[in-house]
Structures are given as C-alpha cells and as structure tokens.
Design a protein around this nucleic acid. Structure first.
Length: 424
RNA sequence: GGUGAGGUGGAUGAGUGGCUGAAAUCAACGGUUUGCUAAACCGUCGUACGGAUUUAAGUCUGUACCGCGGGUUCGAAUCCCGCCCUCACCGCCA
C-alpha cells in the first residue's frame, strides 16, 4: 500500500510512476486526494465536537461532586445536542475512511527508476546470462518423458488422488525433492538466513499484508469453512511473522528462509505450458525473506540476486537474469529480477526464481516498522524476498540438461544429499 | 467437541464508572559514578490519525485506542450483548 503522505506531497510523481508500471487508472490518484482532503476536514470537525463533549462531561462530573444537580442537568441537555452531530460525523468519517482504503489498496507499488519501461515479457531486460548450455544428443527428451522413463513422478495417480497438477513424487523422484530442499536450506542458512517452518494456511489478514488479497484472491485455495487460505508461497506466513511489530534498528536486517509446499490455482493457464512440471498446483519451494533498513534495500536486493545466482551456478545450470519491465512486474513489487534456467530439451527458458524489493509496500500494509537509534522515530522497514529456489522447473532442467546414455547426471553439489550422482 | 478461567503498554501485573493513556516492577535507552564490568543513583520510555508553529531536528496541541465490534451513560479499561483468541482440564487424535 502506498503511503498517503507520498501521494499527498507528490501526486504527479506517483502518477508518472504508475504509468511506468503500465497502470492505466491514474485518475485514482486524484480521487484519493479529494477523499483524503474531505476526510481530514471531517476529522477536524469531529475532533472539535468530541473535545467539547469531553470538556462538558468533566464539568458535569465536577458539578455532581459539588452537589449542584440543577446545573449538571442543564449541562446534560446541552451535551445531548452534541451527541447527535457526533454520531453523524462519525458515520460520515467511516464512509470516507473506507473509500480511501478501497482506493489505496487498488494502487500497485511504484516501480523504481531502475525498472525498464514496457508492457509485456518481451520488454524485460536481460541483465546477464551464465552457465553453459549443454550439447544434447539428437534424441534428447523433454523432462516429462524422462520422468516416465525413470519412474520419478506419477502425474496420473496424483490426478486420481486430487486432480491434475498435483504431482505424486516417487522413489528417486521423491528423494530428489528432499535432497534439493535440504541443499537449498543449507545454502541459505550458511548465508545467515534463519530457518523457519511456517503454517501452510493463513488467515485473510496475513494474505492482505503481503499483497495476495484482494489482488490475487482467485489464485489461492480458500477454505471457506474456516476462512483460511492455502499459502501460494512461504513469503506470506514468514513475512507476517513481523506484522504489527516495531523493531529496533539494531534488529535489522532480519533474514529468514523457509521451505514450504506452495499451492496455486493458476486458473488461467492452459496448453503446452502446463506439460509435466512446467506448471502445477502444488510444488515445493524454498524462500528467502529480508526485512531491512530503507537505506540498505537496494544493495540487499543485489546481494540476494547474487545469492540466488550462486545457487544456480552450483547446480551447473545455464541461466539468465531478467530485470522485469514495468508492465510485467507484480502488483506489490518496486523492482523484480526473474531467474530463468535453460530447458535444453524443450529449448526454452523456465522461470525458477523471482527476487523482489517491495520497499514499504508490504510493510505499510503490515505495519512493520523500526525505531531509529537516533531520535527514536518509527518508520517502515523495507521487505524483500526471492525464491531460493522453486523446485519443479529446477528438476525439469536438471533432468533434461543432465541426460546421458546411461542415465541422468546430477550436479556434484547434490551427490551428498541425494546419495549418488546418477539417476538411472 | 465439552467445561472452566482469562485477554491491560516490550514483559510481568495493578486497576470495578469521572482524580487512569493507564500504578508498580522488570527490560530497554540516555546520563552520573567507575581502571574495566557489575551494582547504585538520576532521567527518558506507547501507537495511530489530525492541527498549529519551526528552515529543519523539534515544540505545542486535539482526537482515538486497555483482544475486536456494538450498546448503556453527561462520562467506560471498568457495566451489558455478540464475536475472536489464549490457557487449563476432559473427549478425540498423529
């Protein structure tokens, strides 16, 4: 959520940045300003009335104590008139506050100046590429064939148990998941991230704080009976650890990592893009999250990008890093880097990580602040997060890129976790 | 699911209608003392939304908030109603 003070003080800047994000309804900015002005005006009136009745109540109390009942009764009649306008003003104020909030939550985060202009994925900027694309034999197979060949995942039975997009991992396939999760968590904790196992369902308040509600309502599984949502990412429960808190400046940065299954309805997807592991409703992911001092967030973002890049390098996968253009970025993000790995057999790039700086967008919703060491002022922290990493497409790339005549060659770094270097 | 108890500031915890935005203690922060540490002593120590003033840090000021929402009353942390949550015991269960 954008800070109303920023909108108030710099509306033209806000509009310009929203346009950069390809957000059409810049008229909302003028609307919210008008409502904000009315709201403040009304609050002043209400406060004045409340102040009067507070004073009157005190006087009545004193009169009663002095035994002057007649005077007190006269006062009471006076106050009765105030109560009516109090009630009316309160109602009006509530309406305006609600209207203001309604608009505020429709406004996406502002992109930073580093974000390239553009509307579609084609406009994303390739920051750099790394790793080597393998030379596969002519008969190289896509991962869904390899999965069958080595009996790693049973999609059909998963569909029988639950529905399509709920993979049933089996044997070495299951073990590879476990190996990857363990390796990723170790890699993250060695970099100073504290490991968590969060709840996998969250309440509406948590989903609102990180920006999933109301923007992505339809993308989450929703337990209506208990009014809970299955998490689409560990980002939601883990970031919410610090909802409604005021940290000390010395507590920053807070670095957290968590493995969780992720649940996504992805109602809109179809076609070849959903083959195999390319797009599923339930998948495993290890997430990294940081809460940092606003002055640090830019360089922390770079550090997190480097962190994820190092992880991909250790997996010996060919990858590239994209800086997303304004139009392709998420609602809550100020700047996002996407990581893609090269799927050799499908001959296309698969997104495996998304690292974002949300600046104060989430913390403003969450009311996560810190007190400065000097002056003791409270201000909003910056939040950042990224996948480190999402498993399915990593597995797809590992299988496709590692395929040989004799089996699938895994990167060296996994052999200890997997208990061997080959599948097959 | 049943029964009982309870939700007050960072923590413990007092407060049953006006003197309470809230005692006290602890923690934290600043200072004095000290060779260093500790102790002792002094001081500071909630948040949000507004307003005034200041170049600004700030200062002054209004309102709201004692789990959440509503009600009674001139006046509510305190009384009433609904909801949520926590704890204990029982039941069920990995």
């Amino acid at each position: 959520m954008l800070d109303i003070k920023l909108i108030r003080e710099n509306p033209e800047f806000v509009k310009e940045r929203l346009a950069h994000k390809n957000f059409a309804q810049t008229g909302l900015v003028d609307q919210i300003l008008a409502i904000d002005a009315d709201r403040r005006n009304l609050q002043q009136k209400l406060d004045a009335v409340l102040s009067q009745s507070n004073l009157a109540a005190k006087e009545i109390g004193n009169l009663m104590k002095a035994g002057n009942k007649t005077e007190a009764d006269i006062k009471k009649v006076e106050v009765a008139g105030l109560k009516d306008s109090e009630k009316q003003l309160k109602t009006e104020l509530n309406v305006l506050e609600k209207q203001q909030l309604d608009i505020a939550i429709q406004l996406p985060n502002l992109p930073t100046k580093a974000v390239p202009a553009g509307k579609t994925p084609e406009d994303n900027e390739v920051v750099r590429e790394g790793g080597n694309k393998p030379n596969l034999p002519a008969n190289a197979q896509p991962h869904w064939e390899l999965i069958k060949k080595y009996d790693l995942i049973d999609f059909e039975t998963g569909a029988k148990i639950t529905g399509s997009g709920f993979p049933l991992y089996k044997g070495k396939g299951a073990k590879l998941q476990r190996a990857l999760v363990s390796y990723f968590l170790d890699y993250n904790t060695q970099a100073g991230y504290t490991e968590y196992i969060p709840p996998y369902m969250v309440n509406a308040e948590s989903a609102f704080s990180t920006g999933q509600l109301p923007d992505k309502e339809g993308q989450m599984y929703h337990m209506e009976v208990d009014e809970l949502y299955m998490i689409p990412t560990a980002e939601v429960p883990v970031t919410n650890i610090y909802r409604d808190t005021i940290l000390k400046e010395t507590d920053l940065p807070v670095k957290m990592t968590a493995y969780s299954p992720c649940f996504r309805r992805e109602a809109g997807s179809f076609g070849a893009n959903v083959r195999g592991l390319n797009r599923v409703h339930q998948f495993e992911k290890v997430e990294i999250i940081q809460l940092v001092h606003p002055e640090q967030s830019e360089q922390v973002l770079d550090a997190m990008v480097a962190h994820v890049e190092g992880l991909l390098q250790s997996l010996e996968l060919p990858y590239r890093i994209l800086r997303l253009c304004g139009g392709d970025m998420g609602f809550a993000s100020a700047i996002t880097y996407d990581f893609e790995v090269w799927s050799a057999a499908q001959e296309k790039w698969l997104e495996v990580s998304s690292v974002s700086n949300f600046e104060t967008f989430q913390s403003n919703r969450m009311k996560c602040r810190f007190k400065t060491a000097e002056g003791g002022k409270t201000q909003l922290v910056h939040t950042l997060n990224g996948s480190s990493l999402a498993l399915p497409r990593i597995v797809a790339a590992l299988l496709e890129n590692g395929q040989t005549e004799t089996g699938i060659q895994l990167p060296e770094v996994l052999t200890g976790y997997f208990g061997g270097g080959m599948i097959g």
